[in-house]
Nucleic acid binder design. Structure first.
Lengths: 254, 254
DNA sequence: ATTGTTATTGTCAAGTTGATAATAACAATC
DNA sequence: GATTGTTATTATCAACTTGACAATAACAAT
């Protein structure tokens, strides 16, 4: 089939009329919008939270949706994700450390009832202190923006196919935590092993014995030398030493 | 920012004029084409091959490119990938077993010099017998289509950003072979441990000791009871028993 | 019958895991 | 100032996995 990467000059007879027209003039391309949707995670009190916005317009008026928006003409999807994160949630990237990576692209023809919208979903991790999460400010056309606990969420209540996207984000995060130190993106740059273990508890919904957790994870971490005092014995601070965990964890129940 | 998912009725003053127009009338959306590109792998004689097409039109005339094409108005990206696989390479899916999964989306603004093209790349694995690979037939606007050995390829010679896409495909395959039985998608439904080991050799570019390979992989496989005779001792046939390898391999050099 | 080749099983030391206990370092309380 | 409660970190040990390599077995070809 013809594609825009191919010059129209040599279009052959086997190309359909519609294809020919499509490649002949950009204005005749079927109208497709390309957007990004964001699965933004943070952990508070050992509970995994996701940033959602309440829709202020039909369709799905009043329902929770993932923040997101158009990919602009001069940016790629990753840049659009960063921009929309600020615009749709009001997060200040000057004060908050974020990790963004592409998740998957959702392209079912009628995923948006109004027109063809292809969405490049992204996973966003917000580094938090474990005890609070920044307030969100709704963007342009959202009624409000709010953190909601992922594991208590009624996925069927989400707008569009956002339940699928959220599930993909959760699975990506939980999966990558088996073989990378991605969980450290949800805690400050320097963190204790307990803080990191709380991330695992929140995401995997299972407790890991502290002793074994320390033994295994320590190999991927670098101690800063400093200690912090909470209740109990003082805990050492670490930074990420290696992106990889080797050999990987296997999640209880995998 | 406004997005097509939001009704235009409530567009607020904070929306830019361009955004408003964009959401007001689909025809005013910036022209974006959504395509799929395919990284099609097969293994012949323990060498990993990728299906490439020679471009028959500018830009990049005469250069090798990945097969691919438009996502049609009534199909999602996965369906487009299946369709384009047949149209661009002439592969007969009636005779050949294929595995297709989404890889990543490439959206750099000028990745195609002519217009905005967002491409959803897919990984395609073709089950082969290990000794031959089906001939390819060039589609509409390609000069020819051919299998080329991945590890001998000059990546810089590929058209567009297809070197990046191919690298992503190879990394996905090599990575998933650590913790899933995806390698079995490159051999017939029933296969010997040697045949499967040849896939690992071809993709990882490293030899795995036969004894240890058998010991570890057997846990994920189901013996059919049948045996096949080549040179040497007869080998048992297996099918995939579990999608997962647990605990995972760690690739030599990871 | 012998040789060459490959499949499969066995062996063993070194390393990893899961379960659980022991030790240590504090704060808060008595 | 000793005791208690709490948490961090290290230790222990049996079960399991790995990597290296050897041994055995099953054929075809000579």
């Amino acid at each position: 089939m013809n594609r825009p990467e191919d010059g129209v000059e040599i279009s052959t007879g086997s190309t359909t009329e519609a294809d020919f027209l499509a490649s002949y003039d950009p204005a005749n391309f079927p109208a497709v919008a390309v957007t990004v949707d964001l699965v933004v995670f943070a952990v508070v009190n050992k509970v995994l939270q996701v940033a959602l916005v309440e829709r202020g317009a039909p369709p799905f008026l009043g329902r929770w949706a993932l923040p997101g928006g158009f990919v602009g003409p001069a940016e790629d999807a990753l840049a659009a994700a960063h921009r929309e994160l600020v615009e749709e949630t009001g997060l200040d990237l000057g004060t908050h450390r974020v990790f963004v990576e592409q998740l998957a692209t959702f392209s079912a023809p009628h995923r948006d009832p109004r027109m063809r919208v292809v969405s490049v979903a992204h996973l966003v991790l917000l580094a938090g202190n474990g005890t609070s999460v920044p307030d969100l400010m709704a963007g342009t056309d959202a009624a409000r923006a709010q953190w909601l606990p992922v594991h208590e969420l009624d996925l069927t209540s989400l707008a569009f196919d956002h339940a699928d996207i959220l599930a993909a984000g959760l699975e990506r995060l939980a999966g990558k935590m088996e073989y990378t130190t991605i969980a450290a993106q949800l805690v400050p740059k320097e963190f204790t092993l307990s803080a990191l273990r709380d991330i695992y508890t929140a995401v995997w919904q299972t407790d890991l014995p502290a002793g074994n957790f320390t033994r295994k994870m320590r190999a991927s971490l670098t101690p800063t030398g400093a200690k912090v005092q909470a209740v109990g014995a003082p805990a050492s601070l670490f930074t990420v030493g290696s992106e990889w965990i080797s050999p990987p964890w296997s999640r209880p129940g995998s």
